[in-house]
Simulated assay, not measured.
Amino acid sequence: MSSRWKLIAVSAGGAVCLGIMFLLFWSGMPREQTETQESVPWENQSEENGQEETSGSDSDKETEEPDGDVRVDVKGEVHAPGVYTLQADERVEEAIQKAGGITDRADMLQVNLAERVEDEMVIHIPGEGEETITGPLEENSEEGAVVNVNEAEQVDLETIPGIGPAKAAAILSYREENGSFETIEDLSNVSGIGEKTVEQLRDYISL
């Protein structure tokens, strides 16, 4: 009898152990699946964040790229004076072509066709006997400066855009012979200064 009870006890103990192992295995299955399911969104979220950061960097690069356009004012002896848009790597020659080309009176010996254009640049194509005005206005005269042509000396007259030593001397000679200028238009009577040049100088001179 004692051997039978021992056998029964061992069998019962084995059954209990198997039951416990089965319960542990069964309870562990949902937990592993839950952990796996919970980890997936975090991985996806990291990938999405990485994509957003990459797209943001690309957007910044696109913003930093300049468009390369400049606007220039073409005046003087061209068929269609006006403001034109060009690429930053283009030259004065292209600007003149956009303005319809030069007239028969143009003095191209004073114009550098190979000069690279700049934003807010003034390109003045002079006629015979006139002087050219090429470049940003800020570089040709003092900002906001207006010169009184009836009182200015040689050095002051030369600060006016388009007025060099020869024209400044001609203005002084005219004043000595004819007296003060009565109107701005009277400047066209000075040797080497035409009506178009007077229009170019109007904002920089006074009487």
Rank of each mutant, 00 (worst) to 15 (best):
1 M>E: 11
3 S>I: 07
4 R>H: 13
7 L>G: 13
12 A>C: 12
18 L>I: 12
19 G>A: 12
23 L>I: 14
23 L>C: 15
23 L>T: 14
23 L>W: 14
25 F>P: 10
28 G>K: 14
29 M>R: 15
30 P>F: 01
32 E>K: 13
33 Q>K: 11
33 Q>V: 09
33 Q>E: 12
35 E>M: 10
37 Q>E: 09
37 Q>F: 10
37 Q>H: 11
38 E>H: 08
38 E>Y: 07
40 V>L: 10
41 P>H: 00
42 W>Y: 15
43 E>N: 13
46 S>T: 15
47 E>Q: 13
50 G>R: 13
52 E>C: 14
52 E>P: 10
53 E>S: 12
54 T>R: 15
61 K>H: 10
63 T>Y: 12
69 D>T: 14
71 R>D: 08
72 V>T: 04
72 V>W: 01
75 K>D: 04
75 K>Y: 07
75 K>L: 02
86 L>S: 05
86 L>F: 05
91 R>P: 07
93 E>S: 06
93 E>K: 08
94 E>C: 01
95 A>C: 05
98 K>W: 05
98 K>H: 07
101 G>L: 05
103 T>L: 04
104 D>K: 06
106 A>H: 05
110 Q>G: 00
116 R>G: 08
116 R>A: 03
118 E>R: 00
124 H>C: 06
125 I>R: 07
126 P>F: 00
129 G>L: 08
130 E>R: 02
131 E>W: 10
131 E>C: 07
132 T>E: 06
133 I>M: 02
137 L>F: 05
138 E>C: 12
140 N>C: 10
140 N>K: 13
140 N>T: 13
141 S>F: 00
141 S>I: 06
142 E>Y: 08
144 G>H: 08
145 A>F: 11
147 V>A: 03
148 N>S: 00
149 V>S: 05
151 E>L: 09
151 E>N: 10
153 E>H: 14
155 V>K: 15
156 D>I: 09
156 D>L: 10
160 I>L: 01
160 I>F: 03
161 P>T: 04
162 G>Q: 00
163 I>M: 06
163 I>P: 04
164 G>A: 09
169 A>G: 13
170 A>E: 05
170 A>T: 08
172 L>E: 09
174 Y>M: 06
175 R>W: 03
178 N>C: 07
180 S>Y: 01
182 E>Q: 07
186 D>Y: 01
186 D>H: 05
186 D>C: 01
187 L>Q: 02
190 V>P: 03
191 S>D: 11
191 S>W: 10
191 S>Y: 11
192 G>F: 05
195 E>N: 08
197 T>K: 08
200 Q>W: 02
201 L>A: 01
201 L>M: 00
201 L>K: 00
202 R>T: 09
204 Y>A: 03
204 Y>N: 04
205 I>V: 07
205 I>W: 03
206 S>A: 02
207 L>M: 06
207 L>F: 00
207 L>K: 00
